[in-house]
Nucleic acid binder design. Sequence first.
DNA 1: CGGGTACGTACCCACAAGGTTACATTCGCA
DNA 2: TGCGAATGTAACCTTGTGGGTACGTACCCG
Lengths: 105, 105
Amino acid sequence: MDAVLHALADESRRTVLEILRDHPASAGELAEALPIARPGVSRHLRVLREAGLVDVRQDAQRRIYTLRPEALVEVDEWLGTYRLLWENRLDALHAAIARGKKARR
Amino acid sequence: MDAVLHALADESRRTVLEILRDHPASAGELAEALPIARPGVSRHLRVLREAGLVDVRQDAQRRIYTLRPEALVEVDEWLGTYRLLWENRLDALHAAIARGKKARR
DNA sequence: CGGGTACGTACCCACAAGGTTACATTCGCA
DNA sequence: TGCGAATGTAACCTTGTGGGTACGTACCCG
């Protein structure tokens, strides 16, 4: 969880994920699509790999990266502990609106 | 979204949120509960405030901080774009298991 | 077995982040 | 009004992070 959130804090890394969400890609393709040079991308991928957000598969000289969205389940579950809170708050808001309408009749 | 994820990347700040999830608290209380000194906590709170994760209310000299889980909705929505992916994957897994059972009959 | 290709890593530099101490500010109260 | 309490901010230092360049290393192909 810590590693995942840390990995997501950087926008470039999130962009990598968004590319991989559409299709697997090699390190080189990712580097082309990003504003940073290849070595930087390699380091981003290393972080994502260690956070469990991507998988690598070797194809000759190329390394094909694929998304591994299971890791995001952790974040999803963590958010779950707050989801109840904001749902309650929205319910309260709806109730307040309903009371307001009623009062205006 | 960027600001929120960045704010969440630090563990101390997440701990602040976890305290506030249970009850509102003053800056001093939070500092006592954390391993860092008050000025550090103040800066953490500033980040959380600017990310929209907490609200402040002034009570005499004290500032009472309360959770504002609405901001986490952003993260929740962003995760939603990946939820479909991992649900499909889980479905595929379940299907594979079902096929396995069938084959073993 | 060379040569080109696709990556990753080591090294270096600049900057941002996080912590602490010292100081300024605001508020309640005698 | 003067004092203590609660908090935020400024200045400073240390460490971590992100980016680039240079280099090492597999791998295919002729």
